[in-house]
Design a protein around this nucleic acid. Structure first.
Lengths: 210, 210
DNA sequence: ACCTGAACACCGTTCAAGT
DNA sequence: ACCTGAACACCGTTCAAGT
């Protein structure tokens, strides 16, 4: 039996994901990663082509666990769409470094086609017109990415208070009014995940899902 | 009259925006930018605090022109929301480097509060419940960002054909069906901007906008 | 065959000095 | 007062050599 290689691509991918989670993409360096794995910097290049490929390996690691989390045949189409969308959001919220590193490619790996297909299945089962479903799938995914990485959501009352005091009421009346209504109706705690859930329901209504 | 400074913050911001558009954030360097402006690298630091501030200046430049593009009082609330959302999308599509560089901060500048306020105004005018409007505003903005920077949209028939041939029909039936319906119904040309317009209408339906 | 140190061509930013 | 070159502490990746 040959001596196993000291490190595998999987080891590298796991270390990269941990570094992305801990310090973010900007601070992720081949040198530091190699040091952490106890190998020379150049050894990494035997397992990944370059830094891009390193991040792709980390992405695949995250989405590899996704099919198992998918709802089984027993649920309604609407429940399936909600489950898939929020699972994607949760994965992205857990690993914000992925979006920082990859942008669009984070959801363009072969691994994520199963997700897209599950959304299509759920929407069709919920009675959504096929063309409307096809247009609506990117809406759900783009919103999940935008919400995870970029939301302008106000999540706590202090931020809202600060905003209220900073904005002249005569000019920003509508904004202050809707923010007040959100605080009164939904929170605290009012998280971006909660907002996502509420909005997915509205999106499904708009798409005509039963 | 004192000799005017050779370069202003505005010059630096314009040059930074051009560089972001041309070569992207990764290739944007203080050294190159300074050379292009015909000054020493360190001179830039008299106009911007650091590279982050440089990008913020470029962002403000882009959104500075936005209030002028806002619809006036004559339109319906629904039309206002559509106009504001698509204008934001167009700005982001024109300058993809902004999202690459900033992520969430791209829409968190004081300049963009006017946008948020206009969306609130439009939604309220369209009869949307205030709390629903407050939750729905980040949906519109997050979707615009996700769509501009990260969409998984299939925009041309070749990509669709490639996908169809790559995916086994028995496993990816729903995905292939909805994609076919989109091609048949909307395109070509079916762009991400077109998809955005369609989906904003559906979002407004879901939010209960008249 | 497998691994990797040294080197190349870059970065952003600090500091101290030049005019 | 205003500007900036040199230097510091980093990068990702190529190349050639080491074991």
């Amino acid at each position: 039996m040959a001596r196993p290689a000291r490190i595998t691509r999987d080891d590298v991918a796991h270390a990269a994901l941990r570094a992305l989670d801990d310090v973010g993409y900007d601070q992720l360096s081949m040198r530091t990663l190699a040091k952490e794995l106890g190998v020379g910097t150049m050894t990494l290049y035997h397992h990944v082509a370059d830094k891009d490929d390193l991040v792709d390996a980390a992405i695949d690691l995250v989405f590899a666990g996704l099919p198992a989390a998918m709802p089984d045949a027993g649920v309604t189409g609407r429940a399936r769409v909600i489950a898939v969308a929020t699972t994607v959001l949760d994965l992205l919220l857990e690993h914000p470094g992925l979006i920082q590193a990859r942008g669009q490619r984070a959801l363009r790996r072969p691994t994520t086609l199963a997700v897209t297909n599950d959304l299509a299945r759920g929407l069709l089962e919920a009675g959504v017109d096929p063309a409307t479903a096809g247009v609506g799938i990117p809406l759900l995914l783009d919103y999940a990415i935008g919400c995870a990485g970029f939301t302008t959501q106000i999540e706590d009352e202090e931020t809202f208070e600060a905003l209220r005091q900073a904005l002249p009421a005569d000019e920003f009346g509508p904004l202050l009014a809707v923010n007040q209504a959100v605080i009164d109706t939904y929170g605290p705690p009012y998280t971006r995940r909660r907002a996502f859930e509420i909005n997915v329901e509205r999106i499904l209504d708009g798409l005509g899902a039963r």
